[in-house]
Design a binder for these strands. Structure first.
Lengths: 234, 234
DNA sequence: CCTTCTAAGATTGTCGACAATTTACGGATA
DNA sequence: TATCCGTAAATTGTCGACAATCTTAGAAGG
C-alpha cells in the first residue's frame, strides 16, 4: 500500500493508481488541458479495463480536473481566466476560514513545527535561489498544514481533495517561479504569528490578502501566457 | 429527459435516475443515516446492475452523502453534532461569499423577482401557518437564487451540488419546522435589500449572521433529538 | 453551393461473470 | 472461558462483451 505525497490517500486498488497517475499527468500538462479523453485509448495506455478507468474518471471529476457529459464523454478542464478568478474567490473564502479556525485549534507543537518549516524554507531558498520546485512544494506544504490545523475535516477534505489539485494545475502550467519568494515568506511569517497569538480575525485577514497577492501574481503570468499563445498563432 | 427539482441536473442515463432516487431516500431518511450499503441488494432493489449502482454511489460520495472505503464498502453518512458544526462553518464562509458577489453581479430583474418571491412566501406562510414544507422549500429557494446570483459557476456547483443535499438531510431528519419562520423572513428581507443597494460587505455579514441563527436553531433540535434517543435506549 | 437527411462508424452506458479481498463462523489451544 | 487461527461465505474490484447513443461522412434535394 503506497502513499500519495500530497493528499495522503492510501493507494490500494488499481483505480486508485490510475487516478493518482492521471491526476499528476493532468496537473503537469502531460494530458493537455481542454483535450478530450478517450476511454478506450487511456484504458489501454494504463493497462486497465474501461470500468477501472471510469472509476478513476469519476474521482477526477469530483476534484474538478475533468468534466463529463452524459453520452458524450469526458474532457480535461480548460484553464481559463474566468475559472482562475472563480477558483481563487472560493479559495480565499475557504482558506481564510481555515486560518481563523487554525488560530483556535492548532496545537502548540504544530505551530512550532510550522515555524521551523518556515525557517528551513528560508535557508533552502537562499541556497537554491530561483529554483521553482522547492518554492512550489514549500508554499503548498505551508498552506496544507494550516488547513489541517483548522481541525475541520469537511473543510480539509474540500480543500486538499477538491480545490488544491486544480490550483496546482494552474501554478504548474503557468510556470510559477519566484520573484514572490521572499515576499511570500514574510507573509507566511505574519500569518503564523497571528495564529500563534490566537488572533483568528487577523490570521484570516492576512491569509486572504496573501491569497489575493498570489492571485494577482498568477493572473499576470496567465495574461503573459495568453499573449504568447496569440503571437504564436499568427 | 426529466429535470430534477433542486439541482437542475438533466436525467438521461439509468445511473442518473438511481442517483437522484437514492439521494432523495437518503436525505429523507428512508435509507437510514450511518447504515451500510449493500451493492447487490440495492442494485436488485432499483433494478439495475452493480456497475450502474456503483456509478450512482460515486456521485453520492462527491456530494458527501455516502462514504467509501476500498475493499470494505459504502455507508451512509452519519449525522453527528461535530459534522453539523463543520458543515455550517463551511456553509457560512461560502454563502457569505456568494452574497457578497451577488451584490455586485445580480441583475436588477433577478433582484426584483426575488423580492416578489419573498412577498409570496409571506402570504403563503400566513395561510399555512406552521406547515413545514413551504418554509423548507422556500428558504432553500431563497438561498439558491442568491447563490446563482453570485455568477461564480464554481461556487454555484460547490454549494448546490455539494453541500446543499447534506444540509437538507440534517434539516429534514431533524424535522425543522418553523418558530423561526417570521424571523427568517425579516432576515431574508434585510439581505435582499443589501444586495439591491450593492452593499456586498453588509450582505455578506447579514447572510453569515442568518446562517449562524439557522445553525443555532438546528443545533437545538439536534440536541433535543439526541436526548430523545438516549431516553429511548434505556 | 448550401442544407438536410441517412447510414455507417465510433464512443459511451450497461450488463453478467470472474478474481481479489474482507468478514464471519467454528474449532483448537492455552 | 477467552483467544487465536483457518476455512467458508459474502462483498467488493475488475474484466470483456453487448446495447444505446452520439458523431461524422456522404448522398440527395433545394
Amino acid at each position: 500500500m503506497t502513499q500519495d505525497a500530497f493528499s495522503e490517500t492510501p493507494i490500494t486498488t488499481a483505480s486508485d493508481q490510475v487516478f493518482v497517475d492521471m491526476r499528476r499527468e493532468i496537473v503537469e500538462g502531460i494530458i493537455v488541458q481542454g483535450s478530450k479523453i478517450s476511454e478506450p485509448e487511456l484504458a489501454k495506455r494504463y493497462g486497465v479495463s474501461r470500468a477501472t478507468l471510469r472509476e478513476a474518471l469519476n474521482r477526477l471529476e469530483s476534484c474538478y480536473l475533468v468534466e463529463r457529459k452524459a453520452n458524450v464523454g469526458c474532457r480535461v478542464v480548460a484553464l481559463t481566466a474566468e475559472r482562475l478568478i472563480e477558483v481563487y474567490q472560493v479559495r480565499s473564502a475557504l482558506e481564510g476560514l481555515a486560518c481563523r479556525l487554525a488560530a483556535d485549534n492548532m496545537a502548540p507543537d504544530e505551530v512550532q513545527s510550522l515555524k521551523q518549516l518556515l525557517n528551513q524554507h528560508l535557508k533552502t531558498q537562499r541556497v537554491k535561489e530561483g529554483e521553482s520546485y522547492y518554492q512550489e512544494a514549500g508554499d503548498l506544504d505551508f498552506h496544507y498544514r494550516i488547513i489541517k490545523g483548522s481541525k475541520n475535516d469537511h473543510l480539509i477534505h474540500l480543500l486538499s481533495n477538491g480545490l488544491y489539485q486544480l490550483i496546482r494545475m494552474y501554478r504548474v502550467q503557468m510556470g510559477m517561479v519566484g520573484p514572490r519568494v521572499s515576499k511570500a515568506f514574510d507573509e507566511h511569517l505574519a500569518i503564523i504569528n497571528a495564529i500563534e497569538n490566537h488572533d483568528g480575525e487577523l490570521a484570516e485577514l492576512l491569509m486572504k490578502r496573501h491569497i489575493s497577492a498570489s492571485q494577482a501574481n498568477i493572473q499576470t503570468k496567465f495574461n503573459l501566457h495568453a499573449a504568447q499563445n496569440e503571437r504564436a498563432e499568427q
